[in-house]
Design a protein around this nucleic acid. Structure first.
Length: 293
DNA sequence: ATGCCTGAAGGGTTCAGA
């Protein structure tokens, strides 16, 4: 366990950990996070272990995985211990059966809940009602947890219109509707702070860009991958940023990792808040909608 | 074209993702 350097925590929807191994392992070596929450692993627990156990152990990680074949799947990797693992949301909703969308563990004294919130598909789809029920059940579980906690992952909800490249492009779609935003706000009302938005209140900050139509190149994305921290954790944040570098190059996920560095001293001077140069988001500006030919 | 990529499963195509 690190006691002097603080703790670096991450959430990253990797969109198939099997396909992402060539990006994930070098990224772990480069960024050296202490706790990594992964979503859309798309592997059973046995397959995850066969693929990654040796590579992770060699890097000092223990893993708590909750997966299934083909779809969904979450995992927490930790260098600072991993205890009291809970898979899924006990008594939570399913479609119709429970899906592998949450895993919770205590790492370095903080309770981490790694989530992959259901997509919802469309506001009139049964998956949309399931999504709202799922977030409500998540809130109940998190509320019953300890004081020092972080809920992080792909929440599939853009908290505000500032979190999408153009609100007009999403009218009638999921991820931006009032009931979804209300459900997210109810979760945050437990005292969870959106630490990336807190750090970049007026900046254009996205975590997901569609693979198609050069959306990443044009920086037309959404911010749907969040790190929500309770006060004892949020007070320790010394940097919070989205690693757009990991979205570049060949074979990326369509999501970028969200990185949060916590200072070790809960009540000490946290010093200047300065991210790496590559982390500075572009200034918010006007952007055209993608046009159909 | 109104799902423009990508991944998975299963089968030469379809579904799902946000």
């Amino acid at each position: 366990m690190r006691t002097l350097r603080g703790v670096r925590i991450v959430t990253w929807n990797v969109n198939s950990v099997k396909q992402r191994v060539p990006r994930l392992l070098p990224w772990l070596d480069e960024r050296k996070p202490d706790v990594v929450c992964l979503q859309e692993t798309k592997l059973t627990d046995d397959a995850f272990g066969a693929l990654l156990d040796d590579e992770l152990h060699a890097r000092g990680y223990e893993a708590a995985v909750h997966g299934q074949g083909a779809w969904n799947g979450v995992a927490i990797l930790s260098k600072v211990g991993i205890e009291d693992v809970v898979r899924g949301i006990p008594d939570g909703p399913g479609f119709p059966d429970p899906e592998a969308r949450a895993v919770t563990a205590t790492c370095g004294g903080i309770r981490f809940t790694c989530v992959y919130v259901p997509n919802g598909r469309a506001p009139d789809d049964p998956h949309y009602a399931y999504k709202l029920e799922w977030v409500s059940a998540l809130k109940d579980m998190v509320e019953a947890g300890p004081e020092a906690k972080v809920v992080l992952g792909d929440v599939n909800i853009a908290p505000t219109d500032d979190d999408v490249f153009d609100p007009a492009a999403y009218v009638g779609s999921t991820h931006v509707t009032a009931p979804e935003r209300d459900a997210l706000a109810s979760l945050q009302a437990l005292g969870l702070r959106d630490v990336v938005r807190d750090r970049w209140p007026d900046e254009r900050v996205f975590s997901y860009w569609d693979y198609r139509a050069g959306m990443f190149h044009k920086d037309l994305g959404m911010r749907i991958d969040l790190v929500l921290a309770s006060a004892p954790v949020a007070e320790r944040v010394k940097a919070a940023w989205i690693d757009r570098q990991a979205r570049k190059g060949s074979g990326p996920s369509d999501h970028a990792p969200v990185i949060v560095d916590l200072d070790e001293a809960p009540d000490g001077d946290i010093g200047p808040v300065v991210p790496p140069p590559s982390a500075k988001p572009a200034k918010r500006g006007s952007h055209k909608l993608p046009q159909s030919p």
